[in-house]
């Protein structure tokens, strides 16, 4: 990944994160049902959280 591209990717990720962790997108998952034994909202929030962290890692640590 080119160094200046890296900066642009970070900004894209930030914007995407703000959208994914905000409404109205989260309203889509705002249901009391369980999926694999876990409430859908909880499952959504923690998986998105994990993915965002993973992508931050990818942008920073992957070399070219």
């Amino acid at each position: 990944m080119l160094p200046n591209r890296r900066g642009q990717w970070l900004i894209v990720l930030f914007v995407a994160g703000c959208l994914l962790f905000g409404f109205p997108l989260m309203a889509l998952f705002n249901q009391p049902q369980l999926a694999v034994g876990v409430p859908i909202t909880v499952l959504y929030l923690f998986s998105i959280w994990f993915v965002v962290i993973g992508l931050t890692w990818l942008i920073h640590e992957r070399r070219n």
């Binding site: 890296r6 900066g7 970070l10 900004i11 990720l13 930030f14 994160g17 703000c18 962790f21 929030l45 959280w49 965002v52 962290i53 931050t56 920073h60």
Partner: peptide
């Protein structure tokens, strides 16, 4: 905890 996670993405700047 979500807020800091999002801001951390921009820490490099």
């Amino acid at each position: 905890y979500i807020g800091p996670t999002l801001i951390a993405i921009l820490w490099w700047f």
